[in-house]
Design a protein around this nucleic acid. Structure first.
Length: 858
RNA sequence: GCCCCAGUGGCGGAACUGGUAGACGCGGCAGACUCAAAAUCUGUUGUUCGCAAGGACGUGCUGGUUCGAUUCCGGCCUGGGGCACCA
């Protein structure tokens, strides 16, 4: 029996697609456009099979939409700036550029093995000046538009990577790549005003109805909008002399009458000033700043305060005042760095008040409670209710109380309603070499001077040394020395480079016109192709790349670069590819190919020693549970790998890569191939007319074919790839069972084979082309339209109807479609099984759901 | 602590808007072909009682709504994810 020769076949069709330029995209207003994009990879070395899932998913979408008549853009490129290149340079004395381009070459070849329908003519690498020069221009435009600024601030310093990190890149107090505990440093840095768009970024999430709710929710939480008030307290010192006002932010202005203290952050100017003359306070602040930002540190850190001796005058109660504390739990970088505390209605304030013996006055009465008896114990009340003990607010509900309190604050000229976001501006300066130089010059007399556009790009120097720690650009002998474009005097280049999320924030636009030289992209091309109709990538970018790109697109829109504001209309986040992990008795990780299973026990092939099988984990080099892409393609071919990646789990869930799984996929490909290469009956020639008479079996098979077309089309549309594969397999089972050698059977079998080839085409494209050709077609399947089903073959004449007695299945009937309630009722009652369960009694009720179910209630 | 999501055979998973739970695959078992193996094909495969016909049970647990619940509602358990001195 001839095995399907995947090696020859896959090479052949890849060459043909390539020669014909099958997947090269051009703007074409006569067809609807469809832009499908997978998050482009960082060229880190080699791809393993886990990386490929993402691209396989996108490829199915691209090929399916193309067959459906869309003008599809499906490009691929390289997110090529990044720290691993520098680490490689340090470890292996290889230049980051050489290392990166070599990886691009290797990984590109690997991707090409998979037969992905990319328009390779649009391939980009972000580390080239022809790419990054445009983002330097964009940055200058942002600067002009006030969207970029420089400020000195406390930043997250990663001591391992020796660079600053953005807030989004700090996970649980540690660097997102290095895992090192992040330190706070005060540095002068470039920021992008993402907060200008905070509200728009939040509001527009509602319009992204083809994004997973989960990602929208994560962005919503990250932006963290809270509505409240700012309020300026008048402060007096212990001796009664006036001190500077303190402004607080609160979401509960309604509880002001319950205020019993004001607290400021240890880094608040008041604390700093006071510490200069109060050694005890200086000690307190130093201790507060020592407490780490890690989760554990925060959990265990005690809420502590330092009484400054100053008093804050109550804005609503003449003559009343509350103490002012410096408290270790108040953050300087949220709100105003100062709060007022209402212990009765905030748990943390309550804990603090109990500790320092401050008053706890309830001002919100829970519904159903009576004023006199309501007291706060160890738990603050944060629910709704009516205000009490609150002067002019008495009797109002919480929301009305907030509004009234804000109105009074405004009236008093002490502040007003405001909206506070958790989101901070995006710090984009990185003290690294392998990134895009920030195009500004520091001049002693002129200050910060943008590099004139005609001097762009500011290119990275190639001759750098990694001999000493820190930024090689800083150590470069000549590069940073230049002259000021404004005054001509000697000046110094900015040696920081952009955060590498800068490149990925606009690459999807670059793909629309990668040859553009005047600008990052042609406006017309970008307006034609954008937004990306379907974007596919990992959930780990839910608030990194996906938020930055949404902001960046708005910023580009603001500066007149393009028309859209949202870059990605549809988003799919795929799960990880996992594999069991193996360790030998020394605890060393083993590669899957070093291990085999003998008698249910995992052993090391080399010496037969037992191996501990660990749990399924994401394929990663560090745990060695990776399966090489070439190994799989060599042994089974790209189509087999693609089929397994698509069929085993729904895309958003994790997928377990297993040897038995790959065998199953490989068997199925051969089965399909045998159906066309060695059919049980000789198939009629291409285009043969439908025989006038079909046997019942042939007719039933034909119905199955058309139902499958309908179902698979729907599944692919909804990205239910695993279900689509299940239905395709079902159809081949049905066709396999089609015995009989008549002309009708042969004709239906041919129709079935053609449909199978077309339906599986997006998933296993090489095999599908081969089947298509074998069936006599001269044209490419890649150019064939998606099959259409005949509506008259979709609906059955006879319906299988379950009959229940008291909700339990007792019989199944075959009834004519839409036979009517009376007929259904009669048929059910006539059934012997039903009669037996009724036991001679009359049914109380019979429920008939047309063409669905009959339930007899006894 | 707060918010979100998910719990279905030995395993991955299916079940449209409340209507035959377990499609399809993996694995297992039995058989055919073969000197034998591989490959392939056929049958079978939720648990349980029964010789059988046919029952009973079964979608994390527990109540409820309904003629009927994997699906809706309440409470709980477990796992995963996000956020977190955020005022």
């Amino acid at each position: 029996m001839a095995r399907y020769n995947f090696k020859e076949t896959e090479t052949k069709w890849q060459a043909i697609w390539d020669q014909r330029g099958s997947f090269i995209a051009k703007e074409d207003s006569s067809r609807p456009k469809y832009y499908v994009l997978e998050m482009f990879p960082y060229p880190s070395g080699r791809l393993h099979i886990g990386h490929v899932r993402n691209y396989a998913l996108g490829d199915v979408v691209a090929r399916f939409k193309r067959a459906q008549g869309f003008n599809v853009l499906h490009p691929m490129g390289w997110d090529a700036f990044g720290l691993p290149a520098e680490n490689a340079a340090i470890a292996n004395k290889v230049h980051p550029a050489d290392w990166t381009y070599e990886n691009i070459r290797v990984m590109g070849d690997q991707l090409r093995l998979m037969g992905l329908a990319y328009d390779w003519t649009r391939e980009i690498a972000t580390c080239g000046p022809e790419y990054y020069r445009h983002e330097q221009k964009m940055f200058l435009d942002f600067l002009k538009a006030g969207l970029a600024y420089r400020k000195e601030s406390w930043v997250n310093w990663d001591p391992v990577e020796n660079t600053v990190l953005a807030n989004e890149q700090v996970i649980d107090g540690c660097g997102w790549r290095s895992g090192a505990l992040v330190e706070k440093r005060k540095l002068s840095q470039w920021f992008l005003r993402i907060t200008d768009f905070a509200d728009d970024l939040l509001e527009a999430l509602k319009t992204l109805d083809r994004w997973p709710d989960k990602v929208r929710l994560m962005q919503e939480n990250w932006i963290g909008k809270s509505t409240g008030a700012r309020l300026r307290f008048t402060i007096v010192r212990g001796d009664g002399s006036p001190a500077p006002d303190i402004e607080v932010f609160t979401t509960r202005p309604d509880t002001l009458f319950g205020a019993s203290f004001v607290a400021v952050s240890p880094n608040h100017p008041l604390a700093t000033d006071l510490a200069a003359t109060t050694p005890a306070l200086a000690g307190f602040i130093a201790e507060a700043n020592r407490v780490g930002t890690s989760e554990a540190a925060i959990e265990t850190a005690e809420k502590k305060g330092f009484d400054t001796g100053q008093r804050a005058l109550h804005p609503f109660i003449d003559g009343a005042s509350v103490p002012v504390y410096v408290a270790n739990f108040v953050l300087m970088d949220y709100g105003t760095g100062a709060i007022f505390g209402c212990p009765a209605h905030d748990q943390r304030d309550l804990d603090f008040a109990r500790k320092y013996g401050l008053a706890v006055l309830p001002v919100v009465l829970p519904p159903g409670q009576h004023g006199g008896g309501f007291e706060i114990g160890v738990e603050a009340y944060t629910g709704p209710g009516a205000l009490i003990n609150s002067g002019f607010l008495n009797g109002l509900e919480v929301d009305a109380g907030k509004a009234e309190a804000i109105a009074r604050i405004e009236q008093l000229g002490r502040g007003g309603g405001t909206v506070q976001y958790r989101l901070r501006d995006w710090g984009v300066s990185r003290q690294r070499y392998w990134g895009c130089p920030i195009p500004v010059i520091h001049c002693e007399p002129c200050g910060i001077v943008p590099v004139p556009e005609n001097q762009l790009p500011v290119e990275l120097p190639r001759d750098v040394s990694f001999d000493q720690p820190g930024n090689p650009l800083e150590h470069h002998p000549t590069w940073k020395h230049t002259s000021c474009p404004r005054c001509g005097k000697p000046a110094r280049r900015e040696t920081d480079t952009f955060d590498t999320f800068f490149e990925s924030s606009w690459y999807f636009a670059r793909f629309t016109s990668p040859q553009a030289t005047e600008s990052g992209f042609d406006r017309a091309a970008a307006d034609y192709w954008l937004p990306v109709d379907q974007y596919i990538g990992g959930i780990e970018h839910a608030v990194l790349h996906l938020l930055y790109s949404r902001f960046f697109t708005r910023a580009l829109n603001h500066c007149g670069y393009l028309t859209v504001k949202e870059p990605f209309a549809g988003l799919m986040t795929q799960g990880m590819v996992t594999h069991a992990t193996y360790r030998d008795h020394d605890g060393a990780w083993l590669y899957p190919e070093q291990v085999e299973i003998r008698d249910g026990q995992a052993v090391k092939i080399a010496d037969g020693a037992t191996v501990a099988v660990g749990r399924l984990e994401k394929m990663s080099k560090s745990k060695k549970n990776v399966v090489g892409l070439e190994k799989v393609v060599e042994a089974y071919g790209a189509d087999t790998a693609r089929l397994l990646l698509l069929s085993d789990s729904p895309p958003e869930r994790d997928l377990e890569w297993s040897e038995s799984g790959i065998d199953g996929s490989w068997r199925y490909l051969n089965r399909l191939w045998r159906m066309v290469s060695e059919p049980p009956v000789e198939l009629p020639p291409l285009g043969a007319p439908l025989p006038e008479i079909l046997s019942g079996a042939a007719q039933a098979a034909r119905r199955a074919i058309h139902k499958t077309i309908a179902a698979v089309s729907d599944d692919l549309h909804k990205f239910h790839f695993n279900k689509a594969v299940a239905r395709i397999r079902e159809l081949s089972n049905t066709l396999g069972d089609l015995s009989g050698t008549g002309a009708g059977e042969a004709w239906v079998l041919r129709e079935g084979c053609e449909v199978l080839a077309r339906l599986i085409g997006p998933i296993t494209p090489h095999l599908a082309e081969e089947m298509w050709q074998h069936l006599g077609w001269q044209t490419l399947l890649a150019d064939a339209p998606w099959p259409e089903f005949l509506p008259e073959l979709i609906a059955d004449d006879t319906i299988t109807v379950p009959v229940q007695v008291n909700g339990k299945l007792r019989a199944t009937l075959f009834l004519p479609r839409d036979c009517g309630e009376e007929a259904a009722r009669a048929a059910a009652l006539a059934d012997p099984a039903i009669q037996r369960f009724l036991d001679g009694k009359l049914p109380r009720k019979i429920i008939v759901v047309a063409n669905r179910v009959i339930n007899v209630v006894a």
